[in-house]
């Protein structure tokens, strides 16, 4: 963690699209009268999605006004949660898990790849395609090490497979999310070692 500040370069204004306004009204309606402020997180998140993955200052004000909150209260929320990006991110925003299981399984190597292919942490690459950030556990420890790129998890990475993913993304090719080592989901890497008979005999084994 470090001090999170608003980006020095901010857009003039921000407004939800008509579709998002409708959606936001639905979110606000979930909460009782006078408690609209509870909808702050989904609304800020939607604002971030609409605004290329980062949350500009006008959007914080816009959402605060929509929820009848003081600006400072919305700013508190936006700066508290690290998933709100306060500065621009790349088209492909890489969140690299550096927590213990991933670190033990080679997250440091992946960081090197990021530095080489993207640049320093927290900066957008020159072509605008990538930026990366080390984050805390994303909850895919069984497939460590892993990264999240935009909404997708890429798991069981090593330097080579991670480089391939990044290069494919840069080239605009389709990439397959999930484990990158032919493993299915979180099954054992060398194939099943137990329950191998499931489906072959209805009566085999105990409960």
């Amino acid at each position: 963690m470090s001090v999170r500040r608003l980006d020095p370069n901010q857009p003039e204004s921000f407004a939800f699209t008509a579709e998002n306004i409708e959606w936001a009204k639905g979110q606000i309606a979930k909460y009782p009268e006078g408690k609209q402020a509870s909808a702050i997180i989904p609304l800020l998140w939607r604002a971030q999605e609409q605004h290329d993955g980062w949350l500009p200052e006008p959007a914080i004000r816009y959402v605060a006004e929509m929820l009848d909150m003081e600006y400072i209260r919305a700013l508190e929320v936006a700066t508290f949660y690290t998933m709100f990006n306060l500065s621009p991110v790349g088209e492909h925003y890489v969140q690299l898990c550096g927590t213990t299981p991933c670190w033990l399984r080679g997250a440091d190597e992946l960081k090197e790849v990021c530095r080489k292919h993207i640049g320093p942490e927290g900066t957008v690459s020159a072509d605008g395609k990538f930026s990366w950030l080390e984050v805390e556990c994303l909850g895919a420890c069984v497939n460590a090490p892993m990264v999240q790129i935009n909404a997708d998890f890429f798991e069981d990475l090593d330097a080579a497979s991670f480089e391939r993913v990044l290069n494919d993304l840069r080239a605009g090719k389709d990439v397959k999310p999930g484990p990158q080592n032919e493993r299915h989901a979180s099954e054992p890497a060398g194939g099943l070692t137990s329950l191998t008979t499931v489906g072959q005999s209805e009566t085999g084994g105990g409960n």
């Binding site: 963690m1 470090s2 999170r4 209260r73 508190e76 700066t79």
Partner: peptide
Amino acid sequence: VPELGAIGRGEDMEITTYL
């Protein structure tokens, strides 16, 4: 006049007014 707030968190929490 709720204009003071705490931005950031943990050790990096800072008391400030909006901008």
